[in-house]
């Protein structure tokens, strides 16, 4: 059995001044090298779970270990990196894509030293892996939403983390963009031997890019392969209006395999 990348042991979390837990009794093991999708409705605690894994929040009870370390330590050592749902980046900064990708690496270098050549090569490789070489010298504020998303992922992988955490990475991305995104993730996964955790309420994003799915709505409902996302499972997770959700994401019982099928994309495009 592979060593655990992230372990949640009976984790509960409650935000201050709230009268109920955002997460309750979460037991979840993310294996090294796997691509885990965490699926659930808005307000189901997905982003909270990621913040606990990043050490940005502390569990009310239970414990979280990341690569055998505390989440804070793993984050400080650069072994886990994340891309947030809503980037807080100020895009008016006169910085190029390359300068943005170099930021976390540069922040670890003493001020009187130049960024080492090996690190510069890591920056270039990260840019190439996400397919951003063509616009590496462009100002960060001149990019489209999809390009910016790629650049932020390049920034995250440039530090060579072992775990990459993505919060709602395909929000606002069209069907063709989602397919390209899934291909890019597959490339990152194979070339960098990354453990990838994706949080999303979008079934298609989860089905296309993950080996396993954990369904979360305050509590963990099930672990399954993407093709185990049956209407019954989804009805339990989303707990209401399942028909509307199906309509929104155009998924059927063969969602996982269908996502890789161009015919499915055509149908989805026609539906939307």
């Amino acid at each position: 059995m592979a060593e655990a990348a992230i372990e949640f042991c009976d984790v509960s979390f409650r935000y201050p001044q709230q009268d109920r837990d955002a997460l309750q009794g979460i037991r979840l093991v993310v294996e090294r090298g796997e691509r885990l999708g965490i699926l659930g409705p808005n307000g189901g605690g997905k982003s909270t779970l990621l913040k606990l894994a990043m050490g940005l929040l502390t569990p009310t009870s239970g414990s979280v270990r990341v690569l055998g370390l505390s989440p804070e330590q793993a984050r400080r050592e650069g072994r886990i990196a994340s891309v947030a749902q809503r980037p807080t980046a100020e895009l008016a900064f006169p910085l190029s894509v390359r300068q943005v990708v170099r930021m976390p690496i540069g922040a670890r270098v003493a001020p009187w030293r130049r960024v080492p050549e090996a690190n510069e090569r890591r920056v270039e490789r990260a840019i190439a892996l996400v397919g951003a070489t063509a616009y590496a010298d462009r100002p960060i504020g001149a990019l489209s939403g999809g390009q910016l998303q790629r650049v932020l992922i390049a920034r995250a992988i440039a530090c060579h983390p072992e775990i990459l955490v993505l919060d709602e990475p395909t929000v606002g991305v069209d069907v063709s963009g989602q397919r390209q995104f899934a291909e890019m993730l597959a490339r990152l996964h194979s070339e960098l031997d990354l453990t990838i955790v994706i949080v999303s309420h979008d079934l298609r994003a989860i089905a296309a890019g993950c080996d396993r799915v954990a369904c979360l709505n305050r509590t963990l409902h099930s672990h399954t392969a993407p093709d185990g996302l049956t209407p019954q499972v989804l009805a339990e997770v989303f707990s209401h209006d399942v028909e509307a959700i199906f309509g929104e994401v155009h998924i059927d019982a063969h969602a996982a395999s269908a996502c890789d099928d161009p015919r499915h994309q055509q149908r989805s495009g026609a539906d939307s």
């Binding site: 990043m54 940005l56 984050r75 400080r76 050592e77 650069g78 990196a81 994340s82 947030a84 980037p87 807080t88 980046a89 100020e90 900064f93 910085l95 943005v100 930021m103 976390p104 922040a107 932020l152 920034r155 530090c159």
Partner: peptide, 12 residues
């Protein structure tokens, strides 16, 4: 200054 949220996630 560029990205306060991310700088925290990168251990700063």
């Amino acid at each position: 200054a560029f990205d306060p949220g991310a700088c925290e996630a990168f251990g700063l």
